[in-house]
Design a protein around this nucleic acid. Sequence first.
DNA 1: CACCCTAAATTGACCGGCCAGTCAGCCTCC
DNA 2: GGAGGCTGACTGGCCGGTCAATTTAGGGTG
Lengths: 202, 202
Amino acid sequence: MALAGKTRKDVLQEFRTSELLDAARHVFALRGYHAATIDQIAAHAGVAKGTVYLYFDSKRELFLAALRQGILALHAEVAHQLRAAPTPQAQLQAFINARFHYFSRHPDLFRIYYTEFPQLATPTASSEFHDLYEQQAKLLESVLADGIRSGHLRPCPVPSTARLVYDLIRSALAQHILHEAADNPNPEAAVFQFIWKGISPS
Amino acid sequence: MALAGKTRKDVLQEFRTSELLDAARHVFALRGYHAATIDQIAAHAGVAKGTVYLYFDSKRELFLAALRQGILALHAEVAHQLRAAPTPQAQLQAFINARFHYFSRHPDLFRIYYTEFPQLATPTASSEFHDLYEQQAKLLESVLADGIRSGHLRPCPVPSTARLVYDLIRSALAQHILHEAADNPNPEAAVFQFIWKGISPS
DNA sequence: CACCCTAAATTGACCGGCCAGTCAGCCTCC
DNA sequence: GGAGGCTGACTGGCCGGTCAATTTAGGGTG
């Protein structure tokens, strides 16, 4: 299905693109945006520097594409998990757990997302990723709104609560992913508990 | 007293140094370490590029000096507040509040500290600021240990709890300082409450 | 007070290295 | 054999760092 109507050429190009994005994420996470060089990324992907420019227009484009692709994959996984969750409680857990699991598997991605480009770390500020953030915020808001409507959650101002919950999750994620000293076995459960106290019916 | 034994020249040099450190913090926070140029910092301090190198050996030195000076000032304020706090509860509050107040006044400093040089954000990792972190950790540990000894606090493993509390404070600070959308009126009180629940006698 | 004279502080043009981005040619596969 | 993907030496600009030239401060002298 993913191959529908695609020539051998298309497939090869997609493969190369994906290889480059992977290499880019790795090197950007390792060295930081400025210290990373196109040569390093190309070498890591096993191609020459010029090849990178056949697939991406500039270093910044490559960076943004690498970041965006990773975040889109995360969001797909979140959506997948959410679909299977029957109650608001389970949905919130899915929203949290999917993030922890995904970023545990892709610490590079989180490291870039959180460390590089300060303005990206505060998603409300206008940035290249505002649309992605907005979409997840809406998702969370609808989980809250549905839960309140059905009586599973205590009434609360939905947008500001969603924002708070979102920030809390990212903050805990940073703790978990960036600080290797992770003595806490399953931080996602702790985050959920904390949030749940705040929004479950007394 | 601060002028004891200092010539006019010394005072002028200190003033210039301090001006440069301020400008450096500002520009580094605004543009990030790599994107910031010495020319920009010099211009912001109202001097020429060459002058910067009369006071600091290199860009990195300047950066580290700017960061260190800011952190030392914070620690001085923390120590001052702590000295006035009679009980372990008040001491913990002082430890938290001093940080929130100081960084609210100096968001640039926090932005650099947290955003730049990922390895600096995790102070346990060996870095240029390990000594400063260690000193504050010891301070916090002694607050906890004293409190436990005097019965004001519930017994707990001191070093790991101190670490946890320290991380929690930094995490909440990041929330507060980096996200301009600070709808929460006094986050420091919330942090204190949260920590207090964990360590006060049942 | 005017005038120098020296030393120190400051300047900014310049250098060199680094790296994003280019492109003329090569190579490979059909 | 040729079309298109790939290469990597090359270029141009940027910026950290330098240093010879210039300005400023200040104090000694007539």
